[in-house]
């Protein structure tokens, strides 16, 4: 039972890890990414459609990443180029994805809300799970050891300094936002063609926000963030396991309390009651060269 629980923890953490690492790039570069949820959702949709068309989960997940990048480009246009408020633009992007996906389902498959089921031999079995942990390592090396990782951190902490060093801040931010779209799209893909068998309406159900919470919990660093995703994934796995199970008598266990735990913990962490977590200094402020 414990082994099963751990295996299911690893599985349900996968989309969170992809999305949270995506969020890390954009937030470390100084662009708050509430839109993660929408990018994930469109990614899940794109991956399902892509797999149905190409019959290959790999090409399908490429489509999912493409869909995420597309939405990220729209977000970048407003948040970076047009200097819209990042929270407002992010909220709008989420709404857009929530509305666009059933709308497109209707056009493509003439059913509201979900795509047709994807045959099991065309879905991923375990690949995204391993891929996500490889990605954690890649991100760790990237942020720590490469110049572009340093640029991303500077774009979020001291954009003026980066600008003075001759690097275009908004280019770095664009790159970071597009990467975050690709990874959030991959997170969505691992929902629709790895964990389940089709796309369904609002299938992310707040996982983008949960990834954001994990990012805060992990202090915007790759390895701690991935561990936070595992914790949240564990909560989700326990909750799935306990659904409908009765303990000592007739009353089923209220899973709601396990459900809200990750959110509660995030608030406590952010408030400094449990450790301390500080956002990149320039996160949320548009950069404009003098």
């Amino acid at each position: 039972m414990l082994a099963q629980l751990l295996a299911s923890t690893l599985r349900v953490s996968t989309p969170l890890i992809f999305a949270a690492l995506g969020g890390m790039f954009s937030e470390r570069a100084g662009v708050v990414n509430i839109a993660l949820e929408g990018m994930m959702l469109l990614g899940a949709f794109g991956a399902a459609v892509g797999t149905l068309v190409t019959h290959s989960p790999w090409l399908g997940s490429a489509c999912g990443m493409g869909a995420g990048i597309l939405l990220a480009a729209l977000y970048g246009l407003f948040a970076i180029r047009l200097r819209a408020n990042q929270i407002v633009a992010g909220t709008a992007i989420n709404m857009l994805a929530l509305g666009l996906t059933p709308f497109l389902c209707k056009i493509l498959y003439d059913v509201t809300g979900s795509t047709p089921p994807i045959p099991i031999d065309q879905r991923f079995r375990t690949a995204p799970l391993y891929l996500s942990w490889v990605l954690v390592l890649v991100c760790w090396v990237w942020m720590k050891r490469t110049p572009s990782g340093l640029w991303i951190s500077f774009a979020g902490e001291h954009p003026e300094a980066l600008n003075a060093a001759g690097i275009r801040v908004n280019r770095v931010r664009w790159l970071a936002v597009l990467i975050s779209g690709a990874l959030a799209g991959m997170g969505g893909a691992s929902l629709s063609i790895f964990l389940s068998s089709s796309f369904s309406r609002n299938m992310t159900a707040g996982r983008g926000f949960m990834a954001l919470a994990a990012l805060i919990f992990g202090k915007w660093k790759p390895v701690p963030t991935a561990i936070a995703c595992l914790l949240f994934g564990f909560a989700e796995a326990v909750q799935i396991r306990l659904q409908g199970v009765s303990l000592l008598g007739s009353k089923p266990i209220p899973v709601q309390f396990i459900q809200i735990l990750p959110y509660l913990v995030t608030i406590l962490v952010l408030a400094g009651f449990v450790g301390h977590s500080r956002a990149p200094k320039a996160a949320g402020t548009p950069f404009q060269r003098e």
Partner: peptide
């Protein structure tokens, strides 16, 4: 939802 999102985006773009 799509209409609302598009209206928000066009208002938000300072």
């Amino acid at each position: 939802l799509i209409l609302q999102a598009l209206v928000i985006l066009s208002v938000s773009a300072d």
